[in-house]
Each structure stands twice: as C-alpha cells, then as structure tokens.
Write a protein that binds this DNA or RNA. Structure first.
Length: 409
RNA sequence: CGGGGUGUGGUGUAACGGCUAACAUUUCCGCUUUGGGAGCGGACGACUCCGGGUUCGAAUCCCGGCAUCCCGACCA
C-alpha cells in the first residue's frame, strides 16, 4: 500500500472528546472514526487489524470443532419474550417499523441459536456440536465509555456449544479455555491476561473471565501471588483463598475483560424446549455453554497495553502491515525495494509521499506502529543499504538490501 | 439514570457583555527544503450546537433542549 494513496491521514492533535488512550491513538493514526458515543467505524488500517484478530480467533475456534455460521442482527420479538428478556434486559435495543412490528437488535444470540439448533437435535447421537459467528452486537449501554472498550455497537465472536452430559460439557469447556489462552497469546496480550474465576458456573462452581491487566480497565481482579490465577471481586468477598492452589496472598489490579466462557446449563434450552433423546429413549434438556470475545475490545486492549507516548506498538501477529518503508527523497530506489517485498508476499506500507519532511514521516510511523521500519535515504544508501528499526526498540541498524527479508521475520 | 465538566473554521485553541470572531494546524498555489511534525509568500475555510430570553449591544449572562466527556449506579 502506498501511503500517498491511503484513504486516511494522521492527525496531529488528539480529539478533545476522547480521553481514553485507545481511542485517541486509533483516531489520530487513522484506524477508526467515531460516529457517536460508543459507535465507531473501522477504517482500512483498523479493519486490517480487526481481520487479523478475527482470523486468529477463527483458527483457534475451528481447532476445537466450532462451525462458523452467521446469524441475523434483527431478531423476532417472540423469541425474546420466550426467555423473558424482552422486558428484563435493559440494554436491548427495540426497533419498531412503519407497520408497528417490533424487533430486537441482537445484543447476544441465545434467542436465535437455540431455536435454530432445535430441528437438528433429536438424538444424543446428534450431540455434541458447537457453532459460532462474528457479528455486530447492539447494546443500549446507558453510558458508553473508554473509547472502543465499551460501545453500543461492537463485533463479537460468540460461540455456543451443545451437549448431552455434563462430563461432555466440562470437557469442551476445558478445551475452550485452552483455545482462549492460545488466542490471547497469539494476539500479543497473553502475558498480561489472567484467567479469572467468576461466579456463575454449576458443575465447577465457577465461570471464567479472561482479564487483561490495564490501568484503564473497569474491573478489579485479585491475582494469586502463588499461581497467578485471578479471582474477580464478586467472589473474593465471599472467599479468601485461591480456588486453584489455596493460596491466600493476592495482588489487586485493574483489568479489562477481554473474553468469557460460561456454563449456560439449561437456561435457554428450557424456554425453547431444546431436548434430545438419550440412549434409553428419555427426553432430556440439552446442556449449553457460551463463549464470547469482543474483537474491538481486544484491539483496544492491545493499544492500551502496548503503546508508548509516541504511538501504537502492534504485535506482529495483528499489525496492519509488517513493514513500514520510508522513502526520504529516494522514491526510485524505494519503489524497487517495495515491489520486491510485495512480490515476496510481505505486507508493506510504503511512505512514498513527496514533499513530506523526514521528521513528519518518522512521527507518523511511530504513531501508526508497524513492527518494522525500513528507511531509505541518501545517507543509508551511502552507508551500504537501508536502515532497519523495530518499533519496540530504540536502536537501528544499517543492513544490506539483500538482507531485508531475513531480518523481518 | 443521578452528579459534574465542555460545546467557536476539517482539527486543536483564543477572544472583559462592545470594531469585520483571533491564532496554530490541515488543505490549495508558488518558491525553497529532506534524519525527528522544516522555511518564506499567498489563498480557501465559521449563521460561535439548537431554540427561547435579558440587553442599545450576546461566542460571552439566564432558561430549555441536544451532543459529548468524566464520576457513580448498571453491565447476559
């Protein structure tokens, strides 16, 4: 991608209506645009990152047998009345059309996925299975806050699993937990992310949240100093020892909930009569689990936790480009290198803008946060090649042009 | 939903109740310049969020609304 053709430009000033670092940097760098409180558009750079996060999640969920589908955003009122949530869920957006028909905008998809699964489940032989999708969720948050961390419209991966026995559910739940660990490792926040015990489970007594340590987080967790698992606030009040190792020394930290896994039991199977016949021919309710990850929240958390005062520092796995190629008045030589890297399948943002000073290109590059920066200038060429600098390091090296590929893996 | 803050060119700010609403930046034109947001000259760009009110006179004061941010409550 040539930067001279890029849809967005960077901004020098931080927008005055954003306090959260994630939104300030993402808007300044041209990744997102704010439409209204809690609602953001993803621009070409932002969408690239979002898609990379999505693909990592997709690979890990496919690996535990999840089948991807895409459910609707507009939901029949009837389904929500069946579960009682038409009236009880205050974040539910209700829309009325000109014929006075009422619908809901989906904030989550139990009300769709359960009736959807019903015709496909009759026997215990049909179980287990799991389905998921990436989709825009709508929640009428009374107070959107923290940039893209708590919005009114956001993309979520929600996975639903269906089981005949609790043993089978527990086995799958464990696999989902491991998939989540892989996901947060791969997107670059694994070290900061703790599994937190939360209330709500039936068999294991707990559900689990994935909490990333960050001062901008709105949650508080207590990290066990002995085994590093965490407990969320609502259960540490009742219990003073670690459920994992029985340690009793905790560190209090603010954190962002980037994902959760939850045992639904028969909460949604019951109202929809989702049943199967067991081996003896008895009808029994299907057991379910649900597993969510907010993509925008993950993206925002990466920015919150990995940026510095100059801009964003993307992990390689989700960076919009691998290389930021800066031409300092050397467009001809730079173009050759750019074409060569593209031919080799490297994702490159090529700052080919003419009449833009070196300093401005450096500032923009720091802000956008691409992992590798290659500078081509009269100076570098005289020294025998190009200059390579990593976004997360201060030092830089002059390397030969032929060496580039081997240095950017 | 309670409490507080803020609404001025695209962006960020300034302006005691009183001249044609100022400055920076962005953008455009010309020249010049290329290692940390370069320099000079010129140009474009605002019914000062909306609606009322007070006043000879309102960006400025008052009332209402809307928007937005923060704190709290809420958060399958």
């Amino acid at each position: 991608m040539k930067q001279s053709k890029l849809f967005t430009k960077t901004r020098r000033e931080t927008p005055k209506d954003e306090i959260a670092k994630n939104a300030q940097l993402l808007i300044r760098a041209g990744f997102i645009n704010k439409e209204m409180a809690g609602v953001y558009s993803y621009l070409p750079l932002g969408l690239k990152v979002l898609k990379k996060i999505e693909n990592i999640i997709r690979e890990e969920i496919n690996a535990i047998g999840g089948q991807e589908l895409l459910m609707s955003s507009l939901h029949p009122k009837e389904n929500w009345e069946k579960t009682g949530r038409w009236d009880s869920l205050d974040v539910l957006y209700k829309v009325t059309d000109s014929l006075e028909r009422e619908n809901a905008l989906g904030p989550t998809h139990e009300e769709i996925v359960v009736p959807l699964a019903k015709p496909f489940i009759s026997s215990y032989r049909d179980l287990p299975f799991s389905v998921y999708h990436f989709q825009n969720k709508f929640r009428k948050e009374v107070r959107a806050k923290s940039g893209i961390l708590r919005g009114r419209e956001f993309i979520m991966k929600d996975l639903y699993s269906f089981h005949s026995t609790k043993e089978d559910f527990e086995e799958y739940y464990q696999k989902a937990k491991e998939a989540y660990i892989n996901i947060f490792d791969r997107v670059g926040i694994g070290e900061l992310t703790h599994i937190a015990f939360a209330s709500g489970g039936s068999f294991s007594k707990y559900s689990h949240e994935f909490q990333t340590i960050s001062s901008t987080g709105e949650d508080v967790i207590y990290i066990c100093k002995k085994c590093s698992v965490a407990i969320n606030k609502e259960i540490i009040d009742k219990q003073k020892e670690c459920p994992e190792c029985e340690g009793d020394d905790f560190e209090e930290k603010k954190s962002i909930e980037v994902g959760n896994i939850f045992d639904l039991k028969t909460k949604f199977s019951d109202p929809f009569g989702l049943e199967y016949k067991d081996i003896d021919g008895n009808r029994k309710p299907v057991l379910m689990g649900c597993y969510g990850i907010g993509l925008g929240r993950v993206l925002g958390t990466i920015v919150e936790t990995l940026s510095d005062d100059k801009g964003i520092i993307w992990p390689k796995s989700v960076a919009p480009f691998r290389v930021h190629l800066l031409s300092l008045d050397q467009n001809q030589k730079s173009k050759e290198i750019y074409d060569d890297l593209i031919k080799k399948g490297i994702e490159v943002l090529f700052d080919d803008r003419e009449g833009v000073s070196a300093g401005e290109k450096f500032k923009d590059s720091d802000l956008i946060g691409i992992p590798y920066r290659i500078i081509i200038s009269e100076k570098s060429l005289k020294s025998g090649g190009v200059e390579l600098k990593k976004r997360n390091e201060d030092k830089s090296d002059i390397i030969k042009i032929e060496e580039i590929i081997s240095k950017i893996d």
